[in-house]
């Protein structure tokens, strides 16, 4: 059997359609995961409640210690049992969010420790506290310090979305499967998907360098 590029080219429009879903799921999942990760870090540092910290620690270690594929299955199959029927797309985003937030919260925790104590003190000495202290002074610096690992985490999320094909989210890999199960040319089709995934991740990583250069001057 020889490699016939025309199959790849023919499939390209549909593959790109799948890729937009991939990007959508990844962006939404990552956006929510950054939000959740930030909330986790904030509750951990500002409230510092023992029980809450315990729950967060358990959550993070469970997410880190189990396969993402099982987490996806659990969200997809277990939530409907409790009466919550979200559908594949939403379940997929939720699973990605819950998974990624555990890593993002750890990344941000690291970023936060890189903000010197003096930054808090300078704000407090000027009467800046609470929401303004965190929102205007501390969190921006935390995010700037966390750009490289956050971008890395985003590429992880981008690739992890391929797993959502198993719960019927029609993203890039699922579309590929649909095409090659009809035309029996998996090599040509999967190669196309392979290249698209690579290009997506490549541009995200390049973007990271630009972001870093842009913000470098604003780091302590």
């Amino acid at each position: 059997m020889k490699f016939d590029l025309s199959y790849t080219i023919d499939a390209l429009p549909r593959l790109l359609e799948g890729a937009t879903v991939t990007v959508q799921v990844a962006l939404l999942g990552f956006l929510f995961s950054i939000t959740l990760g930030t909330i986790i870090v904030l509750t951990r540092t500002t409230l510092n409640w023992r029980i809450l910290n315990g729950i967060i620690a358990v959550y993070v270690s469970f997410i880190r210690g189990t396969p993402l594929m099982i987490q996806i299955f659990l969200v997809y199959y277990v939530l409907p049992v409790t009466g919550l029927n979200l559908g594949a797309f939403t379940s997929g985003i939720l699973a990605i969010t819950l998974n990624s937030a555990a890593f993002v919260s750890e990344i941000l925790r690291g970023g936060l420790t890189s903000v010197p104590k003096g930054q808090f003190e300078a704000a407090k000495s000027l009467g800046v506290s609470g929401v303004a202290l965190w929102g205007r002074v501390i969190l921006p610096q935390t995010f700037i310090a966390s750009i490289p690992p956050l971008v890395n985490e985003f590429t992880q999320v981008l690739k992890a979305t391929a797993l959502l094909s198993i719960i019927t989210v029609v993203e890039l890999l699922r579309v590929s499967q649909q095409i090659y199960s009809a035309n029996y040319h998996p090599v040509e089709i999967l190669s196309g998907a392979f290249i698209i995934y690579f290009l997506l991740c490549f541009f995200v990583s390049r973007g990271s360098v630009l972001l870093e250069n842009h913000w470098r001057v604003r780091r302590a």
Partner: peptide, 21 residues
């Protein structure tokens, strides 16, 4: 307290200016 603190300007050994602004 915030209001009073603002009236007491503080200058630090390590400057503590905000690098992101």
């Amino acid at each position: 307290l915030n209001g009073i603190r603002a009236k007491m300007g503080m200058v630090f050994q390590q400057f503590n200016v905000w690098p992101h602004l």
